[in-house]
Every structure is written in C-alpha cells, then in structure tokens.
Amino acid sequence: MKLKTTLVAAAAATAFSVGAHAATLDDVKAKGFIQCGVSTGLAGFAFTDSDGNWDGFDVVFCRATAAAVFGDPNAIKFTPTTGKTRFTALASGEIDVLYRNTTWTLSRDVDLKFSFLGVNYYDGQGFMIRKDMGVSSASELDGATVCIQTGTTTELNLADFFRANNMSYEPVPIETNAEAQQKYLANACDVYTTDASGLAATRATFEDPENHVILPEIISKEPLGPLVRHGDNAWGDIVRWVLNALIIAEEKGITAANVDSMASADTKDPEIKRLLGVEGNYGEMLGLSADWAVHAIKTGGNYGEIFEKHIGENTAIGLARGLNQLWTKGGILYAPPFR
C-alpha cells in the first residue's frame, strides 16, 4: 500500500515536472530571458571576449533567438556546458535550448528524448597530416599513428573507416583538443583526426600552418544543430524558425545593414514581406511580435554574415562554406519556404 502511494506520488511529481516543462515559451516569457546552453569553449563557436561576454557562431544563433522573442539580443543568459553535462542540463530544465555543436543522431533524438530543430553547421570528421609526409589521401594512411579523442563518436568513426578500407592504425588516445595540438606538434602522432572545423581551427593556431594539410576525405556526417526537450513544440518552433529565418535572409540578400530598409521599403518579393512581418500574421502564429525576424537578423546578420564573421575564410579559423553554402550555390543549406 505504502509502495503504491509512493509510486503515485512519484508519478504525480513527474507529471508535474513535465507539465512545468511543457510550456517553456511561457516560462521564458515570464522570466524575461532565455537560458542558453553553449560549449565551455570551442574556437569560433563559443568563447568569451576580454569583457567576459559570450560570442561565437553558436552564441549568435542563441542571441538571435532571444532577439526574436524579446526584441533584445541581450535578454539571454549562457550556461557553459561540457560534453558530459549538456544533455542533463537540457533534460532537467536548467537550460531552455542547447546550441552546443551537438551532432544530431538517432539515439539522442529518440532515446534521450530531445528534438533537434535543424542544422546550423554541417561538419564531418577529417584528417590533418604534415605536408612533408607526402600523403594526399586518407586511403594512404595504412599503419599511421593517429591522435584521437577518447570516448567520442570520432573514435568509432575512425575504427569503422580503417576497417572498411582494410588498413591498420595505431591510436594515440588523448583527452582534449589542446592536448591533441601539443601531441601532434611534438610528433607523437602522424595524423590528428577530429571534426574538420576543429582541424581547421587547430591548424590556424600553428606557427607554420602551411606545412600541414587537411586531407580531402570526410569520413563521417556530423550535422550540428540546436535542440530542445521533447514535447516542447511551441518553443521548438520558435528556435527552428529563427534558424530558418536567418538562412532565408541570406537567400534573399537581407543583411543586418539593410534589414530595416527592406522592412520599410516597398519590396516586391512577397516572401521577404512575409519574413519581415510586413505581410501576414506569421509572428502571431509563433506567438511573437510581427517583426521578430527583423530583430533576429539585426543581431548578427544573416546566416552567411554570422558564418563569415566567426568561422569564415577571413577569420583565423578559415573555414570554407563547403556543404554549408546555400543550396542555390552548391551547398545543402536549405530552409523550408516561409509561408
């Protein structure tokens, strides 16, 4: 009897906590800011400037979401999360949305009960090697020693790749990216493998980046994107459509500089009108103001602008757009129509 009572109480408590989570949008509006989970530090994606403000590719998307909801990109608080704490932070309601270069996988979507809302960066695992080794393709890596972060999906991808190609390798297990840089530079391994964006960022910090090459093969799919809790649909819609709005803005040539004039001027393009809230009641459908997208775009510009500023070819990270180019320009970045 007692056990039964306890169980009922526990179920009630669970229902209560789920119920409390279900209306994240209301919670967010009530508290007046978004609690966003970001990485504790990943070059170009999330870092702090000398004044202690968070900045970076992922951070700007979070700020744009805050701008869409509150009209203020600073109505946001950041929770730095590690690879170990990120999912718990989201599941327990400590954060409202996780923007932490997290790979969209089936088990995370289904088993951990999160909803991925799109992809803001298509990454993939690559290899970096010294130029004087004379290797031009990953298929020539037979017998190489490889620096590899333990306990990551990259470790599994590496094993798969070498087995599929009938090659052998000698792993040098390392714990962090910083350690990997040191090991690789000290010649403890021939090859360093991790996400291609990470490789580019790492290479950019070398004193002689021209002596290292990133091999052309990408051996895995790593779609990185934002996620919220299951069952949080109204809130998830907002996060999803802020991301889509920034992509559409790039398609339509709307930038941080011209968004105001675009919104006021008599543009011909009906999709721009809908996006910027001149026509239709799309903001209302989302539960936001009509000009939510204007605020979001003003935060850091459209997708392309954010990319160029934080990780693009003119930055120290120096990533090419590659897959992350718009679908009209040879990439796979494709937002559903705004109507």
Partner: peptide, 12 residues
C-alpha cells in the same frame, strides 16, 4: 582556459 583559448585571437 577553454573559452579564452577558443577566442580566435588566443587559440593555440
């Protein structure tokens, strides 16, 4: 260290 080293200026 992590957020500081993630700053493009100080990475490495």
């Amino acid at each position: 260290l992590q957020p500081i080293r993630a700053d493009q200026n100080w990475n490495g």
